[in-house]
Structures are given as C-alpha cells and as structure tokens.
Amino acid sequence: MEALAFSDVTLELGGRTILSRVSFAIETGEFVGLLGPNGAGKTTLLRALLGLVPARSGTIRVLSGAPAAADASIGYMPQTRSSAVGSRLSGWDFVACAANGQRFGLPILDKALRFDVDRAIALVGGADLARRPLVELSGGERQRLLLAQALLGKPRLLLLDEPLISLDLNHQKSIVSLVSELNRELNLTVLFSAHEINPLIGVINRVLYLGNRQAAIGKVEQVITSPVLSRLYGTEIDVVHVGARVFVMAGAYEIERDEHRHDV
C-alpha cells in the first residue's frame, strides 16, 4: 500500500523553484533515506508533506489524503531544534510539551496522554533521560527525546529531518538502528533525511536523492551511481566504493562529507 506520493509536484519558496515536477511514491513500511546536498530541498519536501508548503502544481498524497489532513498520524522531527537546549526542565516535561501542545488551556495531561508520553519515552529507551534536565543532556540524548516526541500519538509515518546532524559516529549508529527497529517492529513508514549516505547503507530500503530541483528514487546501488548523481549535481560525479562505504566525489573533492562538515 502506498504511504505517500508526489505526482508531478513543483515546490516554490519565495518565488524560487525548489523542486520541479517531481514524482515518486513510498510504500507503507518502507524506510527511505532522503539525501541531497545542503539547500537541495529536503526540509522543504518534508514540510510539504506536512502541509506547511503548498504544492505550486501537481498533487501530494499522504496516507491517502491531502497533506495537513493526516497531521495526527505523522510524527515529525524538525531540523532546527536548538531553542530548548538551555532549559532546566526535565526530559519528561520536554517530551510531554508536544502531547496535544497546540490546544489552549493548562499544560495538564490526562491519563491517556501521560501514558502515551511514557510509552514514547520507553520506545526510545529514554527512561533515564526523562528524569534529567535538558541542559545536561548530550546531543545524542536530546535527539533520542526528540524522536520520542515524534512518536507521540502513535503515528504511522515518521518524517525525520537530519537526526544525525552534529552527532559522532557511535551516536549516529545508535539513532539509525533505533529508527530501523521502530520501522520494522511498529511497521512505521520512515522518511529520514541526511547529508551523507554511509550511516544509512544496509539499513534503508531505498534512497530518495534530491539535487538540481530533481529527484531520483531507488535502491542505494541504483541511485548512488555516477550517471544519476551527475544529473542531480549538474556536474561530473564519481562514486567510489571502499568496502561497504561509498564516497561521492567531484574530481578530487568529496562532496557529501564536505557538506556534512558545514553543519557540524
């Protein structure tokens, strides 16, 4: 069954075309990596799926409805998330603030919501983190609680925007394997954006690669190839395999890795 689909979709921001006539479909239960250089439109694509960026033309379907309509069944982890870093509130309260947090009234959760918060925290193995103030958590620990937030309300689709940013290799691995388990055990459809393909190799079912306002979707070995990436980057790209790892090169210059460094 199809979880989400773009057909002939054009997305614009402030008059600039970000994606031009892009089509693809993702099946229920798939774990798809969303790759592409900085500014390729990964965040914009995810926001379009949430109904926050309207399609200029074409149609977007999410969980067989229009975007926005399906809001509650989508778990979203936004990319920018620095604001709460200095907060002295507990991890539990941090996760809980997102449980129907948009409603007016007092921040009091009923039994069902409190149980949902506990469940989401347990799913990411975060019981210990929930008792500590946010300000004392490491980047990886915070990322775990953000993932718990995305799991509130038992979503069927997870949209994760760069969960690996500013994490070291071990923490990256642990987040990827956690998401992979959630994907398999809860049959969640996952769209996971990242700068670099290597942490996701062997885990994702397919990759959706953005660049040059275009998109390519397929198995890693079909998409991470010289002809496909050359088209998406608009320049001659070499793909070098070293063991299980892949390096995307433009001449002597390693593209993905360098992109990644910008953000760290």
Binding site: P78, S83, L89, D93, F94, A98, Q102, P107
Partner: peptide, 13 residues
C-alpha cells in the same frame, strides 16, 4: 500556557 510551553520548548514542531 499549554501552547506557550510547546512553542517555548519546541517552536518548529
């Protein structure tokens, strides 16, 4: 207070 807390801790979400 409820949306304020949400917007304070998780503005993007």
């Amino acid at each position: 207070s409820r949306p304020l807390l949400f917007a304070t801790l998780q503005p993007e979400l």
